[in-house]
Amino acid sequence: MKQCQALVQEINEVSSYFYCLTLEEPYLAQTAQPGQFLHLRVGNGIAPLLRRPFSVAGTSPATGTIRLLFRRVGAGTELLSCLRKGDWLDCLGPLGTPFSAVGKDPAVLLAGGAGVAPLLFLGESMLNAGKNVHLFYGAADAKALLPVDRFLSPGVLIHFATEDGSVGEHGNLSDVFKLALDKGLAPGELFACGPLPLLRVLANENRRWVLPMQVSLEENMACGVGACQGCAVLIKKDGETLYKRVCREGPVFNSSEVVW
């Protein structure tokens, strides 16, 4: 982990409110693993004050670039969306514990909304490792969907789900995934990221499926490096419960260890 000044190579709005930010920073591009995040100083002033964490959505080690996808929702992402090519961005990273592939095929990625970012990176890296990868990606409607195929090499099987049925299957992500299971999909392992209610439902269903399942969690964060204990989540392990840090032991946790 290092503090780096990354050069903005490209920033564009890829769908409404969703931005893709490509940064040039060889160290980050070469060391970041799927599931890890960068802690960005989005402004120079005191409002917004704290850094903002963003999952890495992809890297190109050869060109030394690293990609982030974010939704413009508040003051921090508003500032970030105003960056232009040639600007510098202060980054801490790569931070956090990455996903770890257990190895069973096929891997199924379950992404809700902006939670798709780390799973794109994971999907790409698993594909490169010769695995079969399915991505189930859900959002409210067509407008809220990211053009994920743009960020993935051909080979990842993408299943869209929208709650209004405008793209892909009609329904929420967990229902659409369940339908695929009924039709015979037999995942070797699951990786999920998205809104907490979705992760809760998936974790709950997985008590029946009993598949290895890793989740990437979010929590308000201050230091990002493990010092302040601010981003705690309750984890149960070996019969006891304790708080772990999203920024250090996480953001990726074993779903069965999270106290949902």
Partner: peptide, 22 residues
């Protein structure tokens, strides 16, 4: 073990924390 989350939130030019001395 400290306080239940959320343990912190940003406020205008500041932040509130309730870590609970973990």
């Amino acid at each position: 073990s400290g306080n239940p989350p959320p343990r912190l939130v940003e406020t205008p030019a500041g932040m509130l924390n309730a870590i609970g001395l973990q």
